[in-house]
Amino acid sequence: MLGAVEAQALLPLAARRELPALSLLVVAVTTLLIVNPAFRTPDNLAVLAQDAGILGIMACGQALVIITAGIDLSVGSMLALSACVAGSLMMRGMPWLVASLCGLVAGVVAGLVNGSLITYRRLPPILVTLATLLLYRGLTNVATGAAPYNILPETFKMIGKGTAPLVMMVAVGGLIALMVARGRLGRHILAVGGSPLAARLSGVPPDAVLRRVYAISGLCAGIAGLLLAAANGNAQWNLADGWELDVIAATVIGGVRLTGGEGSILGAMFGAMIIVVLRNALFLLGVPVEQYGLVTGGVIVLAALTEQWRRRVESRQ
């Protein structure tokens, strides 16, 4: 029996876990580029880059959490919390860079609270993050009085425009992927996801690793929150309401296994891009927003079945 890392390295390219997501993405984008002239307008591509970047950053954090066999349902609420902290400080005249940093700190703290409840109190992740999904959203609403923070500095708004979020996603995702592949924390995360007991016996502190993972998820949600607030020119408590399911869908499409121990950050980013590209295609076809779910649902099922098939092929080898 090989460890997760070795098994992945030895797999032939045809069974790499990012491959289904990548091929779907390439096919979808190429088809749209050829078939639909509206898709290749610079404006549309900029919108795509913006949405994909924001969703992709959250998917990277979620992928880490899911690799540890956990789940983070509170990402949408943490996003709104960070954005509102940053937005309110900017409206009070704080320099945007400092305010953004405070927003990120809020995200990290929120993530650490999740991680602490999960590790110190031994609560299941799905329960803790369900509670904090409600708590953080409620807290943000109450603290801000549901007021929008919509007078933001122009320089801050630039970070959400055009390709900036996509560049940010590549940077964040690249860092996290590098950490998983080469870093010590990454190795520990894979170990804890594979088997917490085995990890502990071989000297990996599972609780410290888990707390860091949830903090990173909070940080990613915070970065996405800043980008989204900058893109909309508005930070409000109801930002990214219900996005947790989109984010989980993106990681699943990207081939991250929900039972933990294995997954790919690159795949999660591809998954986010697929969701965004498909939505954009439906939008250009004139399909009403409410009906996108039929396609998203179909893609999720397809991704899950591919993962099952891949696992069967892998276990036969």
Partner: peptide, 22 residues
């Protein structure tokens, strides 16, 4: 098909709501 419950029901979550709108 041994699809994790949260994934299978997530797909139905998206599809059934869209079905209602269609």
């Amino acid at each position: 098909f041994a699809v994790p419950p949260i994934v299978a029901t997530l797909a139905m979550f998206a599809a059934a709501r869209a079905g209602a709108y269609v």
